[in-house]
Design a protein around this nucleic acid. Structure first.
Lengths: 202, 202, 202, 202
DNA sequence: AATGAATGAGCCTTCATTCAT
DNA sequence: GATGAATGAAGGCTCATTCAT
């Protein structure tokens, strides 16, 4: 007598999510290339073959992880955007990143490690570029609202700042003072400087 | 008939530096794992075997690149530190990074791609951690000099900012407005905000 | 609640024959090695596991197909043999092959593809050799009856001819003029040449 | 001091031809699928990796074998065609096949085994179909010259006969009376029957 | 009788590394 | 110093087969 469809689905889902979380962990810890299918299977407590019953290839597995995590992250971002009054949006966003980071540290680690590897990146297919692009645009909108003198440049700067902090946190979560840095950044953006008159810098 | 010792040494040095620059280029472009010894040899215009006459392994080649480039970078930094009056040091440093980046873009690309891959990193041996540590300390000194309220945190923040900009530049040198961002950062640090009284943030 | 034994048996037979015809089709189309158990199950509309409830292995499945089809073919041959007067037996056999081929094209395709792969053949176990042997002997009998000068050689020749035509037909059923060739072969055998005196050929 | 270019070429050629002949042997003996790269390497007395220094893939290796052998065979055929007076061409061709077969028995075994496996065939790329096509056309020309009533059909018949004999020989070189069969076939074609008046066959 | 999740051996291929010259 | 042929240890992936239900 075959297993009931529900029992089957449960088994499958269980396997799938073990694979997914094992790979996220190992991809983040070792990097995509060094995280062996063999090692992933071991970490997930299953056989190598089973991975291919769920994902057609290692690259597919990477894509699945991204799809899953990016959906999660996107939701968090959207929540942050909607929540605040215009004047507080930047503060809101900065403070939100802290939680988003903590909740998906492994994903961010992986994502940052991939960003610098064009070879692997293209196995992932596009999506990441578009995404960062859209973040910059969002930031630019916020900064325009608060009267930044050159919102395009300020957006790049703010994004660089957030990205830099995120990476430093993710690299060393125990020692990097994430919250303190964020609060300090808030100070800076509250005192948003006007662009001064200036002679051409060399 | 044997070559003269000097001619030999010159040949050797020539080979060595071809290998080094070829690997730097390929490591940066493809990532450490995907840059094949075969491809490096081809790029350098020499045989695979010769690489092992100069470096005992691929990891050791990576180490050599780091040693060479870090020396170069350290020198640039030292110059920047010494050049300015205390009050202008932060500005000086920010502006200096632009040139340091442009001169060694490949090295930075590689370095950033490695930083997130502990697996590869440990083949590199320590050194990178110590180095970033020393940078943070230098920054902290600068910030203390200009009266930052919490130099330790401000140093982390400034380092994150520089690192973020550097990465964004290195990722897309043609589109990222590096100089404009740096100048804008200078604005922020000229207007260095005091830490305001504040109720505990949630 | 348990099914009645008869219903069970009917189900079982149904499954078995679906499996058999699905595998014959796929073995013929893709070759034994490339026809996956998974694909066979899909083609048969059943689960992979069920195949192993009927056959202990893929090789055993192949054996079953051969047993089934060879029985079928043997019957057709016997009918052809018995039907004609001695003088017309060769013609009868030639003409009969056409129908036998058309009826079991897939089996012949498979059979021809296997014949050249000793590796697979031995998984099949003996049987095919014996069978071709018996065909040659039958032909030899026919040819002796019609006064062939060297029935043994003529039998080999005739078998080769039939086999050659069969394969060419099976390879390209739409373009190969099977019936025309058979009729032409009949011409040749009606005019069965005497063996001429001859000097040793080099 | 590097090996001389000649020494290198000799080494390479030696390896290449060991690989080529080992694969031909194993492909012919076991079939393409069952002839493992591992087994081929062992048969050739070299490492698995070396095969890929000469051929980019297993399929490529197959292609190389075909290219090599087909050139050889084509030359033999051309020689046979040119050698004889029109009236003796068919005899000449029949007798030539014997030697062509004996010289490349393994290649023919392989070639016949592949012909029935569309999957593998297409990895080989086209060429085989064109080739058989051109053979049939050549035969048709010969038969027209000697006044065959329907050269197109007669060509198919003759080709089937040759192919049938070839296969039977190649399947069992020790027992199949190749020369005797060929001589007997010559008898048949010397006595080339006219097409008789005939009522429609059933 | 039947299912489909799960296994594990083995395949093709890549690549850092060695070695004879 | 330099070459390039050669090796061998994985790595990703497939597939016949088993097993709990």
């Amino acid at each position: 007598m075959p297993r009931s469809p529900e029992a089957n689905e449960k088994l499958r889902d269980e396997s799938r999510s073990r694979i997914l979380s094992a790979s996220l962990r190992l991809f983040a810890e070792l990097g995509y290339e060094r995280a062996t299918i063999k090692a992933i299977a071991a970490e997930a407590g299953i056989s190598q073959g089973l991975i291919y019953a769920h994902f057609t290839s290692k690259a597919e597995l990477l894509r699945a992880i991204f799809a899953q995590s990016m959906a999660d992250v996107r939701a968090s971002f959207a929540a942050a955007e909607a929540a605040d009054a215009p004047s507080a949006r930047i503060e809101g966003l900065l403070r939100a990143s802290s939680e988003i980071l903590r909740r998906n540290a492994d994903f961010w680690r992986l994502s940052y490690s991939l960003r610098m590897q064009p070879g692997v990146l293209q196995e992932l297919g596009s999506g990441l570029d578009d995404w960062t692009q859209s973040i910059v645009e969002t930031l630019e909108g916020f900064l325009r609202e608060v009267g930044a003198p050159d919102p395009a440049v300020d957006a790049e700067l703010l994004f660089a700042l957030i990205d830099g902090m995120s990476q430093h946190y993710v690299l060393d979560p125990d020692d990097f003072p994430l919250e303190a840095c964020i609060e300090r950044a808030v100070d800076f953006y509250r005192a948003l400087p006007k662009r001064p008159k200036r002679r051409m810098p060399a």
